[in-house]
């Protein structure tokens, strides 16, 4: 029997980008307001899982041809690397630096090395979640 999933697929195509944009918003909100790498990553991963539900593993693998285990590793490198960066300045591990910069268009923006750390968390969460989903899904 062929399952009719036109509605799910069409809705997914539209909603997917909204979710991913919102997850990026959450990610950048994270330093001073609720949000951050973990929540952002989970939401992005949820978007990709929605894509998986609407289509199938092969399609998603074609759209996102990454090895998600490597994505996890890259994320870990970002997170640990940011922490280890403090070693170069002989500061305790994980010490962060931040400054306020006046960028064109954006105005006053705070730049913080914690964002780099959070990018790592973001990638780790996506990588781990999708690895889990793929591992269970692949064997069917």
């Amino acid at each position: 029997m062929k399952i009719n999933d036109v509605i799910l697929q069409t809705a997914t195509k539209l909603v997917l980008f909204v979710i991913i944009l919102f997850s990026i918003h959450l990610f950048f909100a994270g330093h001073y307001y609720p949000g951050g790498g973990f929540i952002g990553g989970l939401m992005t991963a949820a978007a990709i899982v929605l894509l998986l539900l609407a289509f199938d593993l092969k399609t998603v693998a074609k759209i996102l041809p990454f090895d998600f285990k490597k994505v996890t590793a890259i994320g870990l490198l970002f997170a640990v690397g940011t922490g280890a960066g403090a070693l170069l300045f002989d500061a305790p591990f994980l010490t962060h630096a931040f400054t306020d910069a006046y960028l064109p268009l954006l105005g006053k923006t705070s730049l913080h090395t914690a964002v780099l750390f959070d990018i790592g968390v973001y990638l780790v969460v996506i990588g781990v979640t999708l690895t889990i989903i793929q591992t269970i899904g692949e064997s069917e």
């Binding site: 889990i132 591992t135 269970i136 064997s139």
Partner: peptide, 15 residues
């Protein structure tokens, strides 16, 4: 986060 990781590992292992 830790229990999320452990539970998912446990689920895959059980499967």
């Amino acid at each position: 986060v830790i229990s999320f990781g452990v539970t998912s590992f446990f689920l895959v292992l059980a499967y």
